[in-house]
Computed example of a mutant assay.
Amino acid sequence: MEILNKVAYSFMLVLVIALMSSTTTRPVSGLFIGKTYVYIINNLGPNIKFNYHCKSADDDLGERSLNFNEEWHWKFQTNWFDTTLFWCNMWWTDTNGRQVSGSTDIYKAKRDKTKCYRRCRYYVKADGIYRYNSVMYRLDLLYTWPQ
């Protein structure tokens, strides 16, 4: 009977370790949470196309563009240590024909998980990029375009 208890204990330990390292779900406070969604919305103005190339250490999301008021999103699972990071190179041409470009961390798990939870919305505007803060119900300036 003691051998059976040791086998059962070992099996449970392996199962817990496997669940903790899974890329599809992760336990937090005894609960399993799902994917995080990041949305990018072009609010630059009519006839202004927003271009960007986002990636993480593991995923290259490719070069993309959005017309005014269009949005695009992707989803992912944050890692157990909340070090998940996506950054984007971005560029657009203003109404005066001036090229505006920059690069920023668009999603940092430790920074963003408490501000936007699992649905993070980023609004691209002429003065910068804003993240919707779902705790305070407001837009927070996250990034200002270089002059």
Rank of each mutant, 00 (worst) to 15 (best):
E2V: 11
E2H: 07
E2D: 10
N5K: 15
K6W: 07
V7P: 04
V7S: 08
A8Q: 13
S10P: 06
F11K: 09
V14L: 15
S21R: 14
S22D: 15
S22W: 14
T24E: 15
T24S: 15
R26K: 14
R26A: 13
V28C: 05
S29A: 07
I33R: 13
K35T: 09
K35F: 08
V38K: 09
I40P: 09
I41W: 03
L44A: 01
L44G: 00
L44D: 00
G45S: 09
G45F: 06
N47W: 02
N47K: 04
K49D: 11
F50C: 03
H53N: 10
C54F: 05
K55T: 08
A57P: 07
A57E: 10
D58L: 11
D59G: 08
D60N: 12
S65Q: 03
N67E: 12
N67Y: 09
F68V: 06
N69W: 03
N69V: 10
E70I: 03
W72Q: 08
W72A: 08
K75P: 02
T78E: 15
N79T: 05
F81I: 14
D82A: 13
L85C: 01
F86N: 02
W87A: 09
C88G: 06
M90A: 13
M90I: 12
W91F: 11
W92T: 08
T95V: 07
T95H: 06
G97E: 04
Q99V: 02
V100Q: 01
S101Y: 05
T104W: 03
I106K: 03
Y107A: 01
K108V: 02
K108T: 01
A109D: 13
D112N: 01
T114A: 06
T114F: 06
C116M: 00
C116R: 00
C116D: 01
C116Y: 01
R119K: 08
R121I: 09
Y122L: 06
V124Q: 05
V124I: 13
G128S: 08
I129V: 15
Y132A: 05
S134I: 04
M136A: 07
R138S: 05
R138E: 07
R138N: 05
L139D: 12
D140E: 13
L142Q: 14
Y143W: 07
W145P: 09
P146R: 05
Q147V: 08
